[in-house]
Amino acid sequence: MNQLVFKSNDQVVTSSRNIARDFDKQHRHVLEAIDAIKGVAENWADLFFQTTYTHEQNKQQYRQYLMNRDGFTLLVMGFTGKKAMQFKMNYMKAFNQMEQQLKELNKPSYMIDDPIKRAEIWITEQKEKKELETKNLVLEQRVSEYEPKITYLDEILKSTDSVTVSQIAEDYGMTGQEMNKLLNQIGIQYKMGGQWLLYSKHKGNGYTKSNTVDITHTDGRRSVKMHTKWTQKGRLFIYESLKEQGVLPLMEIRLNSKNKLDGVKS
């Protein structure tokens, strides 16, 4: 006996070719009838699904429709005759039987009365649960591996403004005075007349921007005060220079600690 219904995407369906075969109609006429329903049924896409099949003789592909119970009912309700009525009954019975089978397969193990089937379904559920947990763990690790980690270097590269030495010092947990002294100790700058100046080998590299301010003292004296800021290029130069000395910004220290901790966990 030819199969009347079958499963597709967790639904019980039949095909337009089955309808043509069993209701003694040409397949193209069945397709035309389904296309006509498309123009009037708002939920047509929930009832019919267009696919293709390969012709057994010429091996070419042609279109066909799959339909669920509601689509089938809508299509064949106009088919008349004793033979048509009998096939309608046969199809409805087939839909009922396979839908019941599908429900049994999808029923949670605790709802199954048969102890052997209940055990089999429980084992399948546990395997699927374990597979899902494994997939989630793998995905979690992949995400953590590819998750962008913002470093101090990233902070420098994304900024364009000049900054004071106090702002740079804050990144290292220092005061401005402590940073100036450290830069002096590693040969980047020296102090003259109350001003911090770059050593000649570092001048002209675009590390700093300075501007002068005229100051009038209370006794009438006038002097010039120079305010120096570090460009992002200079900030990067400080970062690389201090890194060579083993001095890192707080952000990088925290990131390195986190990476070590993650390595221990894994």
Rank of each mutant, 00 (worst) to 15 (best):
M1T: 15
N2M: 13
N9K: 07
D10S: 13
S15C: 03
I19S: 00
A20W: 01
F23A: 01
R28N: 15
H29T: 14
E42T: 10
N43C: 10
N58I: 09
Y62V: 13
R63E: 07
Y65A: 00
F72K: 06
F72R: 08
M77P: 07
F79K: 06
K82T: 12
A84M: 08
L102R: 07
P108R: 05
Y110L: 09
W122F: 13
I123A: 08
E125P: 10
E131W: 06
L132F: 09
K135T: 14
V138R: 08
E140Q: 14
E140P: 00
V143W: 02
E145W: 01
E155Q: 10
I156A: 04
T164Y: 00
V165N: 12
G173E: 03
M174D: 08
G176K: 04
L183T: 04
G187R: 13
Q189G: 05
Q189R: 10
M192W: 04
Q195K: 14
Q195L: 13
K201Q: 15
N205Y: 09
N205G: 07
K209N: 05
N211V: 06
T218G: 00
T218Q: 11
G220H: 12
H227S: 02
H227W: 02
H227M: 02
L236G: 13
K243H: 08
E252G: 04
N256S: 06
S257N: 15
G263N: 15
V264L: 11
